[in-house]
């Protein structure tokens, strides 16, 4: 296959960027998208041009490092798939592919297609944990967790933190990420003591960096792990409760 790439190049966080056109020639349809970029980079280096910097690591769709806006869709046209698992057979010979970095104020560009997603870490630091010091845990089977609850928590916990939700959102909101993280812990019995505090702290931190949710739903389509919008509703509910409820009484049942 022969393709034309229209790639965003930017020398540094403060530099002005621009699109540059590249030819990707003799691409095998069995290559992954990132392998195609590897091949282009090898070519660029041999021509004495700086290679295109892009984030990637595990290349099996789980680490969440890869982050490309491909033809206007985060992670490209194949839904429920991270960039690293997108293969060139999804494109046609002669295509022009536009490749852009994630765009959001919360994700400043580092260089070329690489963005800084450390705001996500700030959100987790604000409350994305259950406070249990090493060694202080009771026996794992002491607290049964209904299977449905464990599965629901796992659905939320499947988030790989790639940021596609933010990239897709016209508002630059991180609601889906934060909701997945909040819900993972809030759905489990172990997460109950810190539930309201966690939600409020994480949401407040999220809002320092990101926009607000207008329930457009583009995030969930972009999500390579199909995290559901329902988690956003759950988070919103807990946030309001967290602001209103007298937490000294939260130990009461019902």
């Amino acid at each position: 296959m022969n393709l034309t790439l229209k790639v965003w190049r930017q020398d540094g966080p403060a530099a002005a960027g621009r699109f540059v056109m590249y030819d990707a020639t003799d691409i095998s349809p069995d290559m992954s998208f990132l392998e195609m970029l590897d091949a282009v980079n090898e070519q660029l280096i041999s021509e004495g041009q700086l290679p295109i910097e892009f984030d990637h690591d595990c290349r099996e769709g789980i680490c969440g490092t890869c982050s490309l806006m491909i033809d206007g869709i985060p992670h490209g046209p194949q839904l429920s798939t991270a960039t690293c698992q997108l293969h060139m057979r999804k494109f046609a010979d002669g295509d022009t592919i536009t490749i852009e970095p994630w765009r959001a104020a919360g994700f400043p560009i580092v260089r070329d297609l690489v963005v800084d997603r450390s705001a996500f870490d700030r959100i987790i630091e604000a409350g994305g944990f259950i406070s249990v010091a090493t060694g202080s845990a009771p026996d794992a089977n002491l607290m049964p967790v209904p299977q449905a609850a464990a599965e629901a928590a796992m659905d939320a916990a499947a988030c790989i933190g790639c940021g596609a939700c933010v990239a897709a959102c016209p508002n630059g909101a991180a609601q889906l990420f934060t909701a997945a993280k909040v819900s993972h812990l809030n759905l489990l019995p172990q997460g109950q003591p810190e539930r309201l505090m966690r939600t409020v702290n994480m949401v407040d931190t999220m809002e320092e960096y990101f926009g607000s949710c207008t329930n457009i739903g583009e995030c969930t389509t972009a999500c390579p792990k199909d995290i559901s919008l329902d988690f956003i509703a759950l988070m919103n509910r807990d946030y309001v409760r967290g602001k209103v409820k007298q937490r000294r009484l939260t130990g009461q049942r019902a």
Partner: peptide, 13 residues
């Protein structure tokens, strides 16, 4: 929160 848009964005949902 979204000061710069995309050259190309396709909306799906």
């Amino acid at each position: 929160a979204k000061p710069v848009g995309y050259e190309r964005q396709q909306f799906v949902e």
